[in-house]
Each structure stands twice: as structure tokens, then as C-alpha cells.
Design a protein around this nucleic acid. Structure first.
Lengths: 154, 154
DNA sequence: ATACATATAATGTTGAAACATGTATTTGTT
DNA sequence: AACAAATACATGTTTCAACATTATATGTAT
């Protein structure tokens, strides 16, 4: 279905408006589908995002602020996200020796194991975006980059 | 900046993964920017979404369930959104005569006036996506449509 | 006509997001 | 050395989202 039928709106004031609505709609759609995968593993998509960042650094620790920098949602409360992950023993946290304001976070073996179970599910989902070619996916990525750049320097 | 530098991730397992992350990241980015416009008018982006749907029907009423169908976020609690809009006198609500389970919602003059003030701000923002051409915006829209379609029939 | 399923919306509850504030530590300046 | 400013994180509070449940009305089959 086109965005027109999905949100039952026939006319848009510009290609930009239609694209903007389509982008937000499609992002919600992606996140909702992925949430159903994450739910079986009792984590949220934000927590998954943090775990992936931590795995990217493993076995090195990473500071809370650096995690926040890398997150998709720049406005999330990283402290509390890590609290939740700590409760589930998926991460460890300790004061950073070089800078005692900072806190080093590291993924546990348990966290790595969870990702290892979860990854095939997520990858299966990703690889099933068969409606578009890899080249088209790259095209979307580069257009989105251009889109954001055009407005960064306002 | 590219998504690589924005989320500081150098490698992706596939063009699809990179596109998915880019899509969610860009949607968050759009919504955050627009939120700053809405904030001056004391509404949320979800409430704005509802108001626009209601204006699209004006002067006809529309049922709560039909509003939910047209929203960008299909999982929002439309009843409570309308409660909030009612408090601000931006909408009216009355039982539907044909079906007493249903509730007819209609935008008020005050609601229309708010949108009239708000529209130029949103349009100014939309029209400033100068990094991409209208043709490219259309291209993104059609690729996103294709993307969602490929997975609707799983 | 009755029973049962479905549709529609509101509500209750729990947990998370949003936003501001607080506290400790570090860095920079004079 | 003393002070101001910046940084890093945690916490408090209020609002909102997510999910399940309830209440009422409508449709359908017997």
C-alpha cells in the first residue's frame, strides 16, 4: 500500500510533506515490527540499541555519555536504561579510573549471549526487506543523509 | 553528516541494516525538530496529527476509530489524545446518533485557528528541506512504499 | 427472542519518556 | 591556591505511552 492509503490522505501539499509523513510512518512501522522480536527477549528497542553499542566496544568499556552520543534517539535517558540492563545482569558498571565523574559500562557474557540469540531473528527480519534492492537501500541512505545535512546549518 | 558519523558506527552488516538505522534516526530527527515548533503552541506532534485529520474532515465529524486508522502512530490511545484536545477546547465530542458505541469528533473554530497559525511554521520547515529535490523526495516516498509492501504479506 | 461474538470507546495500572534539578568531579582562569 | 565554569551522571517529578480490562452497543446465528 502507498502512504496515501495507509493514512487515508489523498493530497499532500508538497513532495516534501508526503515524504516526511512517509518517513515517520515507516519508522514507526519498522520499530513496531522489531519490538515484537525484542519482546520475546524481554528488552526494549532502546535497550537493544545500547547492548549493540556495548558489543561494538567489547571487551573495552565505554562511558555513559559516549553511549548517548551513539544512540538513535539522542534524547533518551541513558542512565536509567543502564539501570534496567544492570538489573537483568546484561551489563556491568563501574567508576572510570581516569575520570571519576564518568562511569564505564561493559556488556556481560550474559548480554553477549542474549545478543547472539537475538541477532538471527533481527537479521532474518532485515534480510527480508525484499521489496527493494540493496542498491535502492543505499540510495535511500544517501538521500536521507543529504536531507539531514540540508537543515543542519540553519 | 552521514549516518556513519552521526551514530559513530563504521560498519553495517548490510545496506538494509544501514538504511533501517538511518530511517529511524532520521525520523527521530524530524520529529524532534517539529516538536520544537509544536511546543510554542502547547501541543504534541500526536495532537497535531489528530487536529490535521479533523480539519481534513471539517465540517463533518469523524469517529474515534477512524482517527486512529489515519494516524502515523497506529498504537496511540486516541481516546486520551482527544481528552487533552477537549480540555484545550480545540475539538468537540458527542455521541454518534447512528451508532451509540461510537463517538463523533469535530474540530472547533479555536482548533482551526490554531492550525492556521501553526501551518506557516510547519510549512516553512518542510519547504526548507533544500538538500534534496522534489523528485528525490518522491523517489524516497515510492521506495518506502515498496519497502513496506515487501513485508506486509509475510 | 436469546445467546454469543464482535465492535467501539473509556478507564486502570504500570512503566517509561521528558524535562528540570542536583551532586560530584574535573578543568580552566586569575 | 582559589574560584568559576564545564562535564558527567544521577535523581525527582510530571506527563505520557503501553497494555489489559471493562462497559456498552451492535450484529449474527440459532
Amino acid at each position: 500500500m502507498s502512504i496515501e492509503t495507509d493514512i487515508k490522505q489523498k493530497k499532500f501539499r508538497s513532495p516534501y510533506q508526503r515524504m516526511g509523513l512517509n518517513l515517520v510512518y515507516t519508522s514507526n512501522w519498522i520499530q513496531y515490527q522489531q519490538m515484537e522480536i525484542f519482546r520475546e527477549f524481554d528488552i526494549t528497542s532502546q535497550q537493544y540499541n545500547v547492548l549493540r553499542i556495548l558489543r561494538g566496544q567489547h571487551p573495552n568499556p565505554i562511558k555513559v555519555s559516549d553511549i548517548a552520543d551513539r544512540m538513535l534517539d539522542k534524547n533518551s535517558n541513558t542512565s536509567r536504561l543502564i539501570d534496567k540492563l544492570l538489573l537483568k545482569k546484561l551489563v556491568d558498571r563501574k567508576s572510570c579510573p581516569n575520570d571519576r565523574r564518568a562511569v564505564d559500562v561493559i556488556i556481560t557474557e550474559e548480554g553477549l549471549a542474549l545478543l547472539k540469540d537475538l541477532d538471527p531473528e533481527v537479521e532474518k527480519w532485515e534480510d527480508n526487506m525484499v521489496g527493494i534492492t540493496p542498491e535502492e537501500a543505499d540510495l535511500i541512505s544517501s538521500l536521507l543523509d543529504k536531507l539531514r545535512n540540508s537543515k543542519n546549518n540553519n
